[in-house]
Design a binder for these strands. Structure first.
Length: 828
RNA sequence: GCUCCAGUGGCGGAAUCGGUAGACGCGUUGGACUUAAAAUCCAAUUGGGCGUAUAACCCAGUGCCAGUUCAAGUCUGGCCUGGAGCACCA
């Protein structure tokens, strides 16, 4: 072993050995229990960034720890490689998106290998390759057969810069999730996946996921947005032409129906024209035209004053016979509930604002105990007792919700209704670089799915990427025309491709059987490996990817393809990597290039540092000094091993009893093993794991400083300590420990060694510090033998000189003894 | 506005159950080694009483205010600040 630590040299050497020997290949068959550790797979953007380094290092350490603890570990990697950046690069450099993607994958693969990650490269998947997207298309067809895919004309989110529609989940604050452009509304016929069929079970099953953080679960629950209420139908009394129309309304406040003073329909409400009188027609038309023009941003602004216009018609309240006017206003949303709202200004803040502005009447129906008579200053939305509500007077409002709805059900104009905020998933994209939607349009037979045996529908090569205003795929001369699978006549192919989130919604399944060319995956294999035991990735996917994947798993279970219904048993959402307190970004110029770190310090330093400073779930502030510190520490460990090489034997034997100093070091090692094992097992607290590496290293150095000549016992103890340290550090400093293991004469790889075990009796110090408190404040600390019983501890404490001085002349009221820890003396 | 998370030295953070607050590191300061530097090693480092070395002691202290308890960073209630998510969702 060399005297100095040359990480670049040893890292290259071992990376080659691991690659040549396929050291991390995972067999499907094994006597060991399975463990599936997974990182969210990267988009091949060109280069790894520090967020990747953090993500993959965390998962890699988990995978290695589980492997050392006797599991058959699946730890795969792949590429989420469809998407717009490849197409943009193609446009700018006139390159083929595939070539651009392949080059990026090659470069990033090299970087991943330089990080020393323990992937089974034989299971690599790449979503843009036909051997993968064939199965994305096949799964689309299975969902189609199951009735979970449909096409409809709808108002959709349109990003002009990306030239494509977006799913609801991909609109953040009214802007595109990718490019931040303002999203517009367009009316288009598009493909949707019926995720709303699964709204209830996606919500309910969050309870089946104790291994997920509450933050992610509440975000998903909010997104699904379940509410319970009722639908009531209100008959229109004066519709033009004497038509008999009813307006159904969804409400979560059936208890306030006696307080309705007007009714609002959305500007886009389908029957709005039938509800408008000729006198009001012009004003209503103008209002609707205005609403259409407004951008998402304007519409969402909370500062906006509510506006609306009356339709001129009226409804009858079937609960009390009152007549009230109909209005249209854009605070009613056409896509939620029935698109119509019953307005109770006294008990809803929005209705209150609107009624104030337009001088509409108000009627109190729930009494505010603080202020029974007043309703003029603000809406009362707290619980209370019903008034002015006929036979329901005196009822508590939460009971009244049920009774009033039931009354309406009995009379035939109401029903109990559960409503969700979640919308169906729009998967059409007017882009080239995605999986083609496997559907054709026959002149005679209409929409026809492509037969499974014709898959994959390949992306055409003869396209013009510089085309503006339409998808490049439409410029192909060979793609569009085809024949109908039913009648054999002329048909045209769907030119939309699928949202890349479809590809990433099932990749974790494919790893179980990545090279299968006959099937999407083998049933036995997928059910063996899944669900993923530990999933690690960024919080930014809390809704998008994680919700879609949960849906896919449930839908495929219902298609009979899977035996489980949740894909990810445990989820770790890692924090962001920051520099100087803000997110690393090219525009801020505060990025750190992983290549430079590998070159200057080596991958082991990068791995150690990225885990050392913060717990995985928290944001991590990158500091150059911190990297330096980790590098110094690895040098310190290296020196400890290399300077002792002649004293260390792998077949050391400890003969008890040991001398006091040796006993202390042995205990220290056991304490470290226990602590490190527990810290990894409990929520992967790698920052404290690394503290403990340092503590143990310091303890060995301190022990050594007291020794001039080593006896046989000393050498055995030192060997035990150093070999344990190497094993404990092996999941993190993967190259250094491999080199050390090899140079000490170890057989095989350190990464094949079982994890260290500890002895509970030795994993504690030989004496304990008895803390003595007076009235709860620490006044003395006494080293005592741990065998003392409670009475003896009490006596030791009371006999302490310090305590005697403090308690003199006072009455001891009470003495509390915490075994092996503490005595608290309460005095007056 | 609603929901969730967080708040501990100069900084990152530590503290299974309520039981020694500040582990470990970064930074800073001083020292050793060296012609010098780097590297390495040693020491100090929450604030105040405290002013000169040393030793000791005392007081305060985990965002703020209350409470429970022999004992609160940890539990309860109310607030403040920051971050994230949702948002005219009836």
């Amino acid at each position: 072993m060399k005297e100095s630590y040359f990480p670049q040299e040893i890292e290259k050497k071992w990376q080659k050995v691991w690659e040549d020997t396929k050291a991390f290949k995972t067999p499907d068959e094994s006597d060991k229990p399975k463990y599936y550790a997974l990182s969210m797979f990267p988009y091949p953007s060109g280069k790894l960034h520090m967020g990747h380094v953090r993500n993959y290092t965390i998962t890699d350490v988990i995978a290695r720890f589980k492997k050392a603890n006797g599991f058959n570990v699946l730890h795969p990697i792949g590429w989420d490689s469809f998407g717009l950046p490849a197409e943009n690069a193609a446009m700018q450099h006139n390159a083929d998106p595939e070539t651009w993607t392949d080059e990026n994958i090659a470069y990033m693969t090299k970087q991943l290998k330089m990080l020393g990650l323990s992937y089974d490269w034989d299971r690599e998947v790449t979503t843009c390759k036909p051997d993968y997207y064939k199965w994305t298309q096949w799964l689309f067809l299975q969902l189609y057969k199951k009735g979970l895919v449909y096409k409809k004309e709808a108002a959709v989110n349109w990003c002009d810069k990306c030239g494509t529609v977006l799913a609801n989940e991909q609109v953040i604050d009214g802007k595109c999730w990718r490019c931040d452009s303002v999203v517009e509304k367009k009316y288009l016929s598009q493909w949707f996946i019926k995720i709303t069929d699964y709204a209830e079970v996606l919500l309910e099953d969050l309870d089946k996921l104790p291994g997920w953080g509450d933050n992610v679960k509440t975000m998903q629950a909010n997104w699904i947005g379940k509410s319970s209420g009722a639908i009531f139908k209100f008959p229109v009394v004066d519709a033009p032409n004497g038509e008999k129309i009813e307006v159904p309304v969804y409400t979560t406040r059936p208890d306030t129906v006696f307080g309705i003073t007007y009714l609002v329909v959305a500007p886009e409400y389908k029957d709005i024209e039938k509800l408008t009188t000729p006198e009001n027609k012009q004003a209503v038309e103008e209002y609707r035209a205005n609403a259409r023009k407004m951008t998402e941003i304007e519409r969402l602004s909370t500062e906006r004053v509510k506006t609306g216009v009356p339709l001129g018609t009226h409804c009858k309240n079937p609960f009390n016979g009152e007549i009230f006017p109909l209005w249209t206003a854009d605070y009613a949303l056409v896509e939620y509930g029935t698109g119509a709202v019953m307005a109770v200004p006294t008990h809803d803040t929005r209705d209150f604002d609107f009624a104030k502005k337009y001088n509409l009447p108000m009627k109190v129906v729930i009494e505010n105990p603080q202020n029974p008579s007043d309703c003029s200053s603000e809406a009362y939305i707290e619980p209370g007792v019903l008034v002015n509500s006929g036979e329901f007077n005196g009822m508590k409002n939460d009971e009244a919700k049920k009774s009033i709805t039931q009354w309406a059900v009995d009379k035939g104009f109401g029903e109990f209704k559960t409503q969700y905020r979640l919308r169906d998933w729009l998967i059409s994209r007017q882009r080239y670089w995605g999986a083609p939607i496997p559907v054709v349009y026959c002149d005679k037979c209409g929409i026809q799915p492509v037969p499974e045996e014709q898959l994959p529908v390949l992306l055409p090569k003869d396209v013009d990427f510089k085309v503006v205003g339409k998808s490049p795929i439409t410029t192909s001369k060979t793609f569009k025309d085809t024949i109908c699978p039913i009648c054999g006549g002329h048909a045209t192919r769907e030119t939309d491709t699928m949202d890349t989130f479809v590809c990433s919604s099932w990749y974790y399944l494919r790893y179980s059987d990545a090279k299968n060319s006959e099937k999407c995956f083998d049933r036995a294999k997928v059910n063996h490996w899944l669900p993923v035991d530990q999933y690690v990735g960024g919080i930014e996917h809390a809704i998008l990817h994680l919700l879609y994947s949960r849906f896919f798993t449930k839908a495929l279970r219902d298609c009979g393809l899977l035996d489980f219904d949740e894909p990810f048993k445990n989820l770790l959402t890692q924090g962001m990597v920051l520099k100087d307190g803000s997110k690393m970004s090219k525009s801020k110029g505060n990025t750190v290039d992983p290549d430079e770190i590998f070159e200057n310090y080596g991958a082991d330093t990068a791995r150690l540092f990225i885990l050392s400073d913060s717990p995985p779930a928290r944001d991590f502030d990158w500091s150059d000094a911190g990297v330096e510190g980790c590098y110094k520490f690895l040098n310190r460990v290296w020196r400890l091993i290399s300077s002792n090489q002649d004293n260390i034997k792998l077949d050391y034997k400890l003969n008890f009893p040991l001398s006091k100093e040796n006993d202390d070091l042995v205990r220290n090692v056991h304490i470290s093993i226990k602590g490190i094992t527990n810290d990894i097992s409990n929520d992967f607290q790698f920052n404290t794991v690394i503290s403990k590496y340092r503590e143990l290293t310091n303890a060995i150095y301190e022990w050594q400083a007291k020794k001039s000549n080593l006896t046989d016992e000393d050498k055995n103890v030192l060997s035990f300590a150093i070999v344990s340290l190497i094993k404990l550090m092996s999941p993190v400093a993967v190259h250094l420990t491999e080199e050390a293991w090899h140079d000490l004469g170890g057989v095989g790889s350190i990464h094949e060694q079982p994890w260290c075990e500890w002895d509970e009796n030795l994993a504690k110090s030989s004496s304990i510090t008895l803390v003595v408190q007076v009235n709860g404040k620490v006044k003395d600390k006494i080293e005592v033998d741990e065998s003392l019983d409670q009475e003896e501890m009490k006596q030791v404490a009371l006999n302490s000189e310090k305590i005697k001085a403090l308690t003199e002349g006072k009455t001891v009221v009470k003495v509390i003894v915490v075994p092996k820890k503490l005595v608290n003396i309460v005095v007056k």
